[in-house]
Design a protein around this nucleic acid. Structure first.
Lengths: 122, 122
DNA sequence: CAGTATCCTTGCGGATACTG
DNA sequence: CAGTATCCGCAAGGATACTG
């Protein structure tokens, strides 16, 4: 994410890599999926995702905001309220991401079975 | 990938996390995408993907084989030929993954523009 | 050709403490 | 509440050398 490596020639591959690298972040996809049904505030987002530290959630949200996938709305109150929601661009990624999520739910059992079989063979 | 953390309660979320963790590997998605159009041997796969070390390609392929997404065919010749191809399970993941790839190609320009705008603002 | 073995660096990401 | 700041361990993964 810090610049295009010299060995890269194809922009198609590079652009694919860029978005995969976005997802690669391990938390990014989870955040987009969590925001898919509507905006959430920082704390709720953290609970919803589960297992993410404040640091990682902040960094992930900043990256997503920077890339134009998430919008941040600050309500100047005390205590502060910060609402995060997907932009149009973010929503356009939500659908394909959801398809991956569905694939996971449908095929995890198969994957785990394959894994057990493979391990038993060794 | 080494066991279910104690803090996790929802299996739906967990299964999502499992497959995202698969993709998370940074190279896994690239490999599945590269094999989508048909089988490839180790060397060709490496060239096709680009920028991946032999070590990482080997590890990624073993993981995918273990999870039942990729099949490995060894042709006992000299020099050896090893062909990799997607299983039915692997092919079922290919489609949603391809959707992500398409999203990338279509929206990378927007993402980069948003990124530049964000950076200019700082 | 298709790996394996080994070493070594980098940075992800958790834990903790603090603030507007 | 919604972060920031700092420290730090560990493992991902690159480079290099070697092998059936």
């Amino acid at each position: 994410m810090t610049g295009k490596p010299k060995w890269l020639t194809s922009t198609a591959i590079w652009s694919t890599r860029v978005s995969l690298a976005r997802i690669d972040n391990k938390w990014t996809a989870m955040v987009v999926l969590a925001l898919g049904k509507g905006g959430l505030r920082f704390g709720d987002l953290r609970v919803r995702i589960g297992g993410i530290s404040a640091k990682m959630l902040t960094e992930t949200l900043r990256d997503l905001e920077r890339d134009g996938l998430v919008a941040r709305h600050i309500h100047a109150e005390m205590p502060p309220r910060v609402q995060y929601e997907l932009t149009d661009l973010g929503r356009s990624l939500y659908k394909p991401l959801q398809a991956i999520g569905r694939w996971a739910e449908e095929h995890t059992a198969e994957v785990l079975a394959a894994r057990d079989a493979y391990d038993a063979r060794q």
